[in-house]
C-alpha cells in the first residue's frame, strides 16, 4: 500500500488485498509527466501469487496504479536508469 500522506484517501493498493504480498522494493522516477513510483512486490506462496512491478502515478490530485507487469516472481530490487539513456 502506497501512502502519499497520512490522509487515508491518498493511498492506493499495489497488490491484491486478498493476497499477502509485500512491497519489497521501491524506486522513484520523475519525468515530464510527473512523479512516478515503481513498486516491486514479493510473492505469496500460500496463495500462489507471484510478485509483480506496479507503476504508481502520483499527481497532485490523484494517485493511481497506471500499469503493472504480469506475475514475474519475487522482486528483490529495482533500479531506474538516468534520463535519456537507452
Amino acid at each position: 500500500m502506497i501512502h502519499r500522506s497520512l490522509i487515508d484517501r491518498d493511498r492506493v493498493e499495489v497488490v491484491d488485498p486478498a493476497h499477502k504480498q509485500h512491497v519489497s522494493s521501491l524506486v522513484w522516477g520523475s519525468g515530464p509527466t510527473g512523479n512516478t513510483l515503481f513498486a516491486g512486490t514479493m510473492e505469496d506462496q500460500a496463495s500462489g501469487s507471484n510478485g509483480h512491478i506496479a507503476v504508481v502515478s502520483l499527481r497532485t490530485d490523484l494517485i493511481t496504479v497506471m500499469d503493472r507487469t504480469q506475475n514475474i516472481g519475487e522482486v528483490d530490487a529495482l533500479g531506474i536508469s538516468p534520463q535519456g539513456m537507452s
Binding site: 522516477g29 510473492e43 514475474i72 519475487e74 522482486v75 528483490d76 533500479g79 531506474i80 536508469s81
Partner: peptide
C-alpha cells in the same frame, strides 16, 4: 543524479523458479 533519475528503462532483480534474473 536525483534530478535526472527518470530514465526510460527499469532494471529489476527477480527471484522465481530457477535462477535469479
Amino acid at each position: 543524479s536525483i534530478k535526472s533519475s527518470s530514465g526510460d528503462r527499469l532494471a529489476a532483480c527477480i527471484r522465481g523458479q530457477g535462477l535469479p534474473s
